[in-house]
C-alpha cells in the first residue's frame, strides 16, 4: 500500500466489489491492480472474506425459544397452526 493511488483504491474497494463503481472508476482500479501487488492481495482477500460470510451457516432459533416467545406474548394457541 505504497503508491499515491492506493488510498483512493482503498476508499472505493467495496463499491468496486459490489458492482456499484462507475465503468470509469472500475477501469482505473483495474489498471492500478495490474501494477500494485499489495492492492491486488487486499482486493482478493477482501472479496474472499465477504464470500466466506455469505456462506457462513446462520444461527438457528431454538424450538424451545420459539415456544417461550409464543407463551410470553400469550399466543400459545397458535403454536401448532
Amino acid at each position: 500500500m505504497e503508491t499515491a493511488r492506493c488510498p483512493h483504491l482503498l476508499e472505493n474497494m467495496s463499491a468496486y466489489l459490489d458492482g456499484e463503481a462507475s465503468a470509469e472508476l472500475c477501469a482505473e482500479i483495474e489498471r492500478h491492480l495490474d501494477g500494485c501487488e499489495d492492492c491486488r492481495v487486499v482486493v482478493d482477500t477482501l472479496r474472499k472474506t465477504i464470500t466466506l460470510y455469505h456462506e457462513l451457516p446462520q444461527p438457528e432459533l431454538h424450538p424451545e425459544a420459539r415456544l417461550r416467545l409464543y407463551k410470553s406474548l400469550d399466543l400459545s394457541e397458535f403454536l401448532n397452526s
Partner: peptide
Amino acid sequence: KSACAECIERHSPGVYRVAL
C-alpha cells in the same frame, strides 16, 4: 392475533440472529 403469530413466524429468526 393470528397476524401476530404470522409476524413471529416470519421475522423472529432474523430478529433473534441480529440480537445474538
